[in-house]
């Protein structure tokens, strides 16, 4: 995004975010974890959604955050080393102390 556009956007938001019941991006940041775990209380969920509706940078931010979570979760089912790739001396060392 071009710097001038960004500055203008922030000037507008700076006014908007001072309106009653409106939270700013920084407060949104603190809500994200709870929001995604569905633990955000109702009284905070509404302002969160209102902010998202108004703020493109937070929408993009949240979407990227979710993409990151999905990419991380994709690593959860790859956690194995085939037995033939495990060094045999390691297995021997683990089993040795119990065979006097």
């Amino acid at each position: 995004m071009n710097l001038l556009v960004d500055r203008t956007r922030r000037r507008i938001h700076g006014v908007l975010f001072r309106l009653p019941g409106i939270v700013n991006c920084e407060e949104i940041e603190g809500f994200i974890l709870d929001y995604l775990e569905d633990e955000l209380p109702k009284c905070q969920r509404q302002p969160f959604n209102v902010h998202l509706a108004m703020c493109k940078s937070c929408r993009t931010y949240l979407a990227d955050y979710k993409t990151t979570l999905t990419a991380t979760a994709a690593l959860s089912n790859e956690g194995d080393i085939a037995l033939e790739d495990v060094p045999e001396d390691l297995i021997a060392a683990i089993l040795r102390p119990r065979c006097p």
């Binding site: 975010f17 700013n24 991006c25 920084e26 940078s57 931010y61």
Partner: peptide, 30 residues
């Protein structure tokens, strides 16, 4: 992330990436 004095998100400028390679396989992205 950075925020200005109004608590408004300061959007990062141009992210760069060393390789120009596109269309990575699922294995490559992992």
């Amino acid at each position: 992330p950075l925020f200005d004095q109004n608590g408004c998100r300061v959007v990062d400028q141009a992210v760069t990436w060393e390789t120009a390679e596109m269309n990575l396989t699922a294995q490559q992205t992992r």
